[in-house]
């Protein structure tokens, strides 16, 4: 068997992928075809009933654990731009909703 692919460990290897289509089954076996840069795997969507086609989901061992919040994703990158431009001390201590 040709197992020669490289790799290291990460504790909870979960990767964002885009839902391309969904096969509606019972709630427990609602399966999405999720694309990771063009490589596609079936992913169980039972834990993310709110997920629909076009959403990005965080996938671990074949299960979607959460839907990526696009606004929060933008805000994280925006925070960094603020650090870049803003004054050193106060800019990044803006109270954040806990």
């Amino acid at each position: 068997m040709d197992w020669t692919v490289g790799g290291d460990g990460v504790m909870c290897l979960a990767v964002p992928g885009r839902i391309e289509s969904i096969r509606e089954g019972g709630l427990l076996d609602r399966v999405g075809r999720v694309s990771f840069g063009g490589s596609i795997r079936d992913v169980n969507l039972a834990f993310v009933p709110e997920a629909c086609v076009g959403h990005y989901v965080i996938v671990h061992v074949g299960f979607a654990l959460s839907v990526v919040d696009e606004d929060e994703a933008r805000r994280t990158l925006e925070d960094i731009r603020l650090i870049e431009s803003g004054p050193a001390q106060t800019d990044d201590t803006r109270p954040r909703p806990l």
Binding site: V5, V10, G37, R41
Partner: peptide, 12 residues
Amino acid sequence: PVRGACEILGLD
């Protein structure tokens, strides 16, 4: 597609 497959399987 290779990057995507490597990411989900934890391979470098």
